[in-house]
Structure formats: C-alpha cells, structure tokens
Design a protein around this nucleic acid. Structure first.
Ligand SMILES: [Mg+2]
Ligand SMILES: [Mg+2]
Lengths: 673, 673
DNA sequence: AATGTGTTTATAAACAATACC
DNA sequence: CTGGTATTGTTTATAAACACA
C-alpha cells in the first residue's frame, strides 16, 4: 500500500476533482465537436427534444446549443449533496470525501467534498430548493447507467458525446454522482458503454476524439425530459404537449422539499424523474415491511432525509438501505412497448412477452416518431434528418404486423415440432411434437420461458402513474389494471425491505460468504441485522398478464424484403439479426419452409422468442400512443440487442454530418428483394 | 435478518449440499436427456472429442455416454480441497464452510466441508495425487466461466447440458468450485449463461427440461482436454496425437506437488490445464514484486501451498492474494488466431487488431477441424455429423482470404471519406476526408482503437509454451519472438503482484471507497496495506505486434455468396452480421461505393473494425496449425458476439435429436447465391 | 511515466419465471 | 389444484485487471 498511496496522492488526477471547473472547461472543448454541427441540426439530430429538460432555472433555456456543463454546480449542489447522506452519514460511503480518485489513489483530499463534508446533516429541505430535476437532494436517480448515458447522449444535437462529457452531463443532472457516488461510478459508465452494443464509439473526423453514440437502430431518443415528467398519458396519439405533462410532474417542490414519507420516493421520483425502473422506487425506503403488505403505495412523499429512514428501520438496515444500490429494474419492456400496444397480442398467453411486438405501435415511435407519438417530445421532435431513415423504419406500421407473423412463421415453421416449444408453457396441444431442439428455434414464439417480463413500467407507482399520465400507459389496454396492484405491492414492498443486501454488500461485511445470487438469504453471514427478506415473493402476486412484450423478433423479411418491412427492420435490428440466419439452414427454412406458417397463429401477437436483442414493435397497428414515457428506457435492452446485431455493419458512408440520416432499407437493399 | 435467516435455514436447499450425492442423482436424470440420443452420436455431436479428458481414473472411460456425475468426488477431492486454502485459511473465505447456500441462508452447516474443513494444511502433495486435471489441489482454474461452461457443454455428445449438470461438471473437474469457491460461483455461472449470447437455452422435447447449448456458430468445441495438454505445437498440420501432448503437460506431479515458487503457477498451470487466459497464471502468487522486475518467469513451479505465499508476502497482501479472484484474461484473440496467421497482415499497423482475420487458418479449425487441426482433439475428433455443416464452414480455406478483402472493401468503400477514419490512427493521407461520422462505419478497418488485443495466447508462460509446444504457436511466424518477452514479463509480473485488489476487494475492506476501475490506486481507502500496484504498467512492455487478430469481419459474402464463403460465414457469424448491413444505406454503400478500395491497402491484413462479434479467421492461408490449444477460449468472445447476431434466427427445424447437425449454408442458401 | 479511455471478466444482487413439493 | 419454496434465468451494479492511446 505504501507505494501506491504515496505516489498516487501526489498526482491528483484531474478527473476526480470537483468537476465543476473541470467539467466546464472540458465540456466546452468536446462540446465543440458536438455542438459544432449545429447547422446540421435538422439533419444530424435524431430526437433532439429539450434534453436538458427543466433543469433548475438556468438550465431551462438551454434547449438549443446549450453549454450544459456549468449549470448548477456549487450553490445548490453543496446544499443538496448534504442531503444525500441517505442513511445519515454512516461510516462507509456516505458523502464522498474518501473516495475521489476512482482509479488512482484513495487520497483523502476530498477535493470536492472539501467544503462541508461530514455534515450530512439534514437532507430534507435542501433538496427541494434549487434543482427540481432529480429527486430531492442527491438521491440516486432511478435510472440505470444505460438510461442515463442515453439521456446524456441524446441531449446533444449530434447525438454523440465524449466520455468525459457524459460524466459531466450526468453529474450535472444527477448531483448524486457528483457528490455522493463513489468514484467507481465512472467505471460503471465506461463499463456500460462497452458492454452494451447499443453504445457505439465513433471517432471524430480528426481521429482524435472519440464520441459515444447510440446505435441509431437502438436509439429511442430517450431524454431526461421524457422521463422527468410523465409526458402526457392522455391520448395515445400523442404529443399532448409534452411539456404540460412535464411541468406537471416537474413541479416537484413539495415533494422534493418534503421530508414526508420515507417511501414516498416513488411518487416524488416521478414528479422529479420517473423511475423507469420498477424497483428503484424507494431508494431511501429501507423500511422493511411487516412483510406481506401488498399495501398500496408507500407514502407518496419522498424521504430525502436519511433520518426519516433511520427512525423507521433499525440501524443495521438503515445502513444497508443507504448503501443499497438498488439495481435499476431494467424497465420492463412492457413499460415501453405497453404504451402503444393494445393487449390483443398479449392475450396469446402470458408468455407472449418476448416480442409481442404489438403491431400497434412500433419502437420507432419511441425513437423519433414524427406525428403522433413524436408529439410526446417536448421541444424538438426527435426526428430530424434522421427521420429519413428513422422515420422510414418507424413509420411504415403496416409492415410490422405482417412482418411479425412472417417471422414467427419463418422461425417456427422449420418443423411442426417447433410449435410445441413455443407453447411449452402453455402446453397448448396445438402442436405437441418434437420441438426438442430449441437451439435455433428462437422464435418459439411465446416460449422464452424467462425473459423477465418485469414489473410494469408504470407500475412503479402505479397509482400515481395511471392517474397522472392518464392514457399514457399502454398497459391499460389489456391486462394492465391487474398489474398495478401487483406492481405496487412489489415495488413498494420488495424494495422496501430487501434490507440486508445492498448491491455492495461486500462493503459492509464483505468477507462473509454471503449467499450469492438470491437476495433472500442475503444474510449469509454478512450483515447481522440485515437478513430480512421474507417478503420476497410474498407480495408479488405475479400477475401473469402484464404485457410483457419481449423483444420482437419480427422482421425476417430481409429476404423477402418489402419496402415497408425494411423500415421495420431498420428499427428492429433484431429482425435483421434474424434475417441473418445463423446457418444456411435457417435461411432456407425460413424462406422455403414456412415463413408465414405461423404455427401458433393462435393469437394476434406472434410473440417470437428472439433471444434478446431487438425490441421491435410494429407501428403497424396504429397505436401511436405515447410510449414515449419510459419507453426508451424499457426498450433499451432490446435496442441494445439490436445494436449488437447491426453494429458490425458499420456505415462509413453516411458522411460526417449526415449522421442522423438513416436510409431506408428499401433504398439500399434492392438486392435483397 | 431474523426472518430470512431463520426460515431459510430450515430448508437447506438441495443445491448447496455436498454435491456428490446430489450430483449423481440429479445428473443421471438429466443426463438421460443428454445421453438419450447416443444413437445420434454421429449426427448430433459437433466436436465430441474426449471431453472428459484424462480425468482421474474412473472418468477416463467415459468417452461415450458417460455419467460423469459421480466421478472423483470424495476420496481425492477431500484431500485436494484441503490444499486449496491458498493463502493459508485466512479469516475470510478460505475453505468454504461458511458460505454454502448461495442464495439461501448463510448457514454454517458446511455440509460438504464437514469432513475436514479447516485443515487447510498442505496443499502441495495432495493435488498431484489423483486428479491430474486441475492444477494442484483446488486452485482456481485459469479459465473463465465462459470457458468452463463450454468445456462442460462440449463434453457431452449432445452438446447440451442442464444448469445443474454444468454445476456438477465443473465441480467434478475443478475441485476448486466444489470446495473452495464461495456459493456465489453458481450465480456467476448462471450469469454467464444468460449474458453471453453464445449460450442458448433449449427446451427439451418434453418442454420440461432446459438445456444449455452453445450456439453452433460460436462453438469452437472447446474441451478440457484441448486445454489441458498443450496439444502438439509441432506441426501446424495438426493432430499430432493430441494425447501425447496432453500427457506431456498433465504429468504435473512435480509442479503440483511442488511448493516451489509462488509464481511458478503459470508453468504448472499449463501442464495441468492451460490457462488460456493471460493473467490468470499466478493465482497463488500474491507476491508483490519489488516492482519493476520485468523478470523472466517467476519460478516455474507451482505454489499450491498457501504457505509458500505467506512467506513471500506480508500478511495483508497474502490475504488478498488469496481472495484475489484473478479475472480471467479473455484470452487474447491472438492466441487462437495466431496459430495460423502469419504476421503479414499484422504489419499493417499496430491497429490492425480488429480483424486481422489472418487468412491463414480459419476459426473453424478450432471448432472441429477434421483433418489437420482436428487431430488436436484427443479422443473423438470434434467433427461428427456436424462436420457436414461445421466442416463446410471451416474447410474451405480459400474463400476466407478473398472474403476478408471483400469485407474490408465493402465496408470501407462507402465513401472515400471512410478511409480516413480507418487510418485515423495512422493518419495516412490516403484519404483524409470527412469520415467524421463513424457511426456505422464500423469497418473503419484497423480503427477500433480499443478492442483489446490482449496478451499473447501462449504468452502466459511464453517460455514454457514455446519450448513445450514447439511449433504449436502461430505467433512465431511473424512478430512473436518479441512478445514472448513481453508476455512473460506481463504475465508473471503483473499477475504476481497486483496484490491489493483481488476481484472481491470488498470482502476485505469492502466499505472503503476503494478506487473503482483502475487497479492501481485500489487502496482508495479500502485496504490499509493494500495499495501496491505500482508495477501495473511498468512491466508490460506492450509489444505492439503480438498478433492480435481482432474479430474478423471477413465474410460479407452473403450477398455474393460462394459456397465456400458461406462456410466461413457460418463460422464467422460476424461476417454475417456485417452482411446484414444495419441500414440499407450501408449495403448500398459497401457494394456501390468502394468495396475493395482498401484505402489502406498498406498491409495484407485488412483489419476491419467490426464492433465486436465474430472472430473469424480465414483458414485460407493454409496454416492449419494447432490453434486448437486455447483457440476456442480465445475466440469465445468473438463467438459470443456471433451468437448474438445469429441467435435470433432460431432454428426449430433441426428436429429434436438432430441437434448437432448443422447444415451448411450452401445447402440452405441457394437463394443467396 | 502517468492518466484517461475502452474492454472484459468476476461477483453480488434483485428479481422474474418456473419447477417442485 | 393451490401455495410456498427452490431452482433457474435475466439484468443491473461494482470492482478489477488490463489493453491501448
Ligand atoms: Mg458498446
Ligand atoms: Mg445466453
């Protein structure tokens, strides 16, 4: 240790520093690149929208080029971050002074923290004050890194951002990372950028600068605003003046300020920023429930103050709760897709999950729907130049439905046997044959046993959500009502306790063997008090329905390319993937065998069971809805998958600035046809 | 905690149990499924090979159906596991008694451990005794979970395995997981199965049983045997009687037993089982070097005994070292590809990395080469029925080279601008245009700045390797000599110290902020002694050359399909992916623009820069080599990528038992042509 | 030589979905 | 056939270890 610490301290790498100064400076430089092409705005940007969203006061006006970097930093920040000490400045992490470096030395410098540090004092009031954005003070935002990165990147016109700027953007918009989070969060950002295929690194013209972009096919153009305020749920069609909705929730003063309920988090969160994530709701809510309390929502108010929590829980738990990272839910697909998707498809079985690409609305919508759904975007309509490409994909709704079917047919068709698998769960006698070898069957339709359906998107605070958003949630269509209940119970309850774990369990007792996976026994040996998860499955009613649309497998059309279909493909990367056909066989099969066979046919939704990727939903149905809400987030996974598929295809051609423009398949693929 | 722990304890889930009994029983059942189709053997299996490899005595005969489950368990096992206590049974993990459950309660039951537990005693001798397989006692094997899972799955004829059987197989073959590893290792196995697209879950005909399979296009048919003994390095052609080689290394008695050098690990490891992974070498070598000792290899002997280590390091470090998980390297691509690839391509620039699909040997080889390379497989030649499909892919070497070029051309061509990017690094004036927008450019050729080249495959113990394997390593061809040096230093040194970190740093000091990513400053605040990484970059000379063949982008042929090419495609999933062309534009671009433009042209290798996936190497060159060694492992990543691409294409058709059979593209793809 | 950036592997968790009892 | 537990599967978060620039 001696060595490392000693010399490392000397350096004091720039990164760790406070950030404000660094940010601003760094940001500008890089921003240049990003902002440079303002002229291209029309073209380059995909979604644009008012990325910066309502941010406090200053930020507000940044709809255009904006130099988001310096915004709120100090004044408020300081105050806020004080509040962050969730559990009350326990020994471990709490503030942040300790850490700093990330890589380098541990140095105690506490550069940033310098000012106030340990104060930890009272979180409550502080939070509300300045930045309405995040929840109170510096609570950990209910978004996954993947989502936040998307927010950041999509907040630029160019839709690309350097790593450093991503750091900065996130710190600026989520004080938690600036003050509370351990330095490791940057590692996580990098990890996410690399891990998810959705994030593609581009090199600047000069070849010097690296920008991170979102694979166009996977980019739902999520922006903080979208999440921030529940858009308008009301009419599916759309836009609804995204703002109104936004504002609606944004108001947050009360909540933010409010030290009300500890659990309220969810609600507050929403106003502030929508969780998008099922579980995350109650960050501060370490409270363990008596157990089986399906209970409605916890108290709606947020509990920025660690104190409140403390009162609630016993010490040990409290600690954990603080620490507890609360893995982001993964935003069930349903959340996204749900918006537009009618339940029709869903009915298939509960399994439809996977694709359920409800013909209704297509993912594209999310990304940048011009008309209907696009409306959801506050400022700029997501679509710009990209529309050319993007729109193409998204717009041709009709194709989607057909496509889907085809896919299903294609995959399943191989042999009658397949069908069986698809319904494995259902056990519908439809086929009951030898599907034994699922291997490639992927399509299996509603079969992917797993593929977590997740909670409901809106479910987080179902109560609020529905009320708030109004028609916004697609769920309502079919199964939703049921879930709400479920979700609620789950969310509130499950999150509530869980207690012992905390993602970083190690921190506390580290050494102890700790039971690995399953949360329940978490106690293992780890935390003395901790282990209290009895609740676990208890609450979860398990509402089968929900609407989990799993990744759509839709397009396989590539071979039987239709102009429209292609569009879909574009968006559904997945389909494309499918199109690839792993082995020649498949191709043949699909084509020759029974493309449209649609063994299942049973229900409208041809839930394919694509492995993962692509999350295409067909716009065809005509549900344009406003999936915009969390959509993006939800779909991320799918998108990510898609990106994996498509990524390799690099596309140097587009030209520098043209970025956004995606050419429709039809244009390029004449051959395929 | 009360609740959780209390009731959970009561249950005592089966999983945790000793395993032996459980295994056997469970294994049989499931095995039935797996073994059922023995008749299909010819067809189903892809690689077959003597999966079980040399396993102790009993196992040995299991080449056919085998009931691997109950093999060695107790007698030897116990002894071995005693030795496991790397660092000497420090407070934390050491034995295993603590943990157990994984999920459930921490219960101290120590079911398995019951017998001897804490004994920890002397690792040395024990190891050698019975199971020649793993390194001494129960050291953590130098394989990543991904690799081990492949070993397990490929050890069956059907090439599929249930989760439980995977657990069992791994425990049986790597005592470490049975006795030493924390219960969380199973969580990691599951995590890997889900995370990597390479692993595909299939449902049994009955729909009840889930089997995990390896995506055919990604399956290199890795088996423990392959790794176990350095195959024959000698003639590239091949087979060389895999066994001899195997034996060669297997002998391990000396080493295993030997408490020699702490660092020797690498060498020993090899004999026992090849690391495949660069870093992993010295598990037990927590020793911190004085720092900049590029030093040759550490003492070659293994140091199974924790004691030895203790002597070496100071207490604090020792602990860590024990804990230190030693992330598996990811086996550089070079390792695999290197075998055949001449260095010609490499010269391009250091950047070629990505694909460098050295035309020489193709990946297929690895998976199941019939002739030359296939020889490397000890028992069964990997190829069975699969050969039909698999072979096709691999065999047609000629196509590969051409293909590669085309790819490059295709992607890059889009516009002259592209070229620029490709050379971004190079800055060759070849184009110097506007390539600014990398987005889809993917190909960018040698551009992907990153894409770790990794250390050398053989590098692990370069010294030994070369000597041992003889001609086996492809590296020698071009640049290798240089690396060896590098590798050596790296491997031995880097691994040697690193000290403080340990993957599970948390365990020790957990709470402390610990610097996140970068290993160096690990100390953050975490471990008092810990922070000692000065060495980090010090030793690594960084031999640019190496031969990192990055994922080959090769095939794009799909459009201009050639029978042979197709074969490649099969294997190279990546190419396929490329073929997909994300958007129509791309396709057009590639085709229309300048496919073979090859802006760089400079060197033979057309390093494309596919994002990740596919790792095809062309067999064309004629280096059949023996990439078999680590090959599979190395390629895994690529394969995994591929699988992502292809997975969705599900392939229900194959029928139940037919599993293994892959149809060659040519058969199915008439259309494409 | 030091740092920043990117990639990968390992672990722990939190859940979802199922399998079983 | 229902309910609870256990197993299996999916995802997100973190920490590390490196490669590379
Ligand atoms: Mg990425
Ligand atoms: Mg998988």
């Amino acid at each position: 240790m001696g060595q490392t610490s000693s010399f490392s301290l000397a350096h004091l790498p720039s990164e760790k520093k406070p950030g404000a100064a660094t940010k601003a400076a760094g940001g500008q430089e890089r921003d240049n690149n990003v902002r440079q092409t303002p002229g291209l705005a029309g073209e380059t940007m995909h979604c644009h929208s008012g990325l910066d969203l309502v941010l406090g006061q200053e930020q507000e006006s940044n709809s255009s080029g904006k130099t988001m970097s310096s915004v709120l930093d100090d004044s408020l920040t300081n105050i806020q971050w004080l509040g962050k000490m969730r559990s009350g400045g326990l020994s471990p992490c709490s503030v942040k002074g300790d850490t700093e470096k990330e890589n380098q030395i541990p140095l105690r410098e506490k550069i940033k923290t310098a000012e106030d540090p340990t104060a930890a004092a009272i979180p409550t009031a502080a939070a509300t004050s300045s930045p309405p954005w995040q929840g109170s003070v510096s609570e950990r935002p209910p978004y996954s890194y993947m989502a936040m990165i998307q927010f950041a990147i999509n907040s630029t016109e160019k839709k690309r951002m350097t790593l450093k700027d991503i750091y900065t953007w996130i710190e600026d918009h989520f004080p938690y990372f600036k003050h509370v989070a351990k330095p490791g969060w940057k590692n996580s950002i990098r990890h996410n950028l690399s891990l998810h295929d959705m994030f593609v690194r581009e090199t600047s013209a000069s070849g010097k600068i690296s920008f991170w972009t979102i694979h166009p096919d996977a980019n739902r153009c999520l922006t903080l605003d979208q999440v921030f305020k529940p858009l308008d749920l009301g009419s599916p069609t759309s836009p609804e003046h995204s703002e109104s909705k936004q504002k609606r929730h944004l108001p947050d003063p009360q909540k933010t300020t409010g030290s009300n309920s500890s659990k309220a988090e969810p609600q507050n969160a929403r106003r502030k920023m929508k969780p998008l994530l099922p579980r995350i709701n109650s960050y501060l809510v370490p409270i363990q429930f008596p157990l089986s309390q399906p209970l409605v929502l916890q108290p709606s108010m947020k509990v920025p103050l660690p104190m409140a929590q403390g009162a609630f829980l016993n010490s040990s738990e409290t600690f954990r709760s603080n620490k507890r990272v609360r893995i982001a839910p993964k935003t069930s697909l349903s959340a996204e897709e749900p918006s537009s998707l009618p339940m029709a498809a869903i009915k298939e079985e509960s399994q439809c999950d996977e694709r359920s690409f409800s013909p209704t609305h297509s993912l594209k919508e999310t990304s940048c729907q011009p008309g209907e759904e696009s409306a959801s975007f506050p400022e700029n309509i997501c679509i710009k130049e990209e529309e050319s490409s993007q729109l193409d994909d998204c717009l041709s709704p009709f194709a989607s439905t057909l496509t889907v079917k085809e896919e299903r047919g294609l995959f399943l068709p191989v042999s009658s046997t397949k069908e069986k698998k698809q319904f494995t769960v259902l056990k519908s006698p439809s086929n009951g044959d030898t599907l034994v070898i699922k291997r490639r069957e992927r399509l299996e339709v509603g079969r992917s046993r797993r593929k977590q359906r997740l909670a409901l998107p809106c479910s987080e605070e179902p109560v609020l959500v529905l009320p708030e958003s109004n028609g916004f949630d697609p769920y309502q269509l079919g199964t939703e009502s049921p879930f709400l209940q479920e979700n609620v119970s789950q969310l509130s309850c499950s999150q509530g306790e869980e207690g012992p774990f905390k993602t970083p369990v190690k921190e506390i007792f580290s050494k102890l063997p700790v039971s690995s996976t399953p949360s329940k026994a978490s106690a293992t040996t780890t935390s003395p008090l901790g282990g209290l998860d009895p609740w676990k499955s208890a609450f979860l009613s398990k509402g089968s329905h929900e609407l989990d649309f799993s990744p759509v497998r839709t397009l396989q059309l590539p071979f039987t390319p239709l102009q429209e279909n292609q569009d879909l493909l574009d968006f559904n990367s997945t389909p494309i993937k499918n199109a690839l056909f792993e082995s020649p066989q498949e191709l043949l099969n699909t084509e020759s065998s029974d493309i449209v066979h649609a063994p299942l046919m049973s229900s409208p939704a041809f839930t394919h069971e694509s492995t993962k990727q692509s999350a295409v939903e067909l716009p065809a149905s005509g549900f344009t809805e406003n999936r915009s809400l969390m959509e993006g987030l939800i779909l991320d996974t799918m998108n990510d998958s898609l990106s994996k598929i498509l990524l390799d295809i690099s596309f140097p051609g587009l030209e520098d600035e043209n970025l956004g423009t995606d050419i429709s398949w039809s244009q390029l693929i004449p051959e395929l046809k």
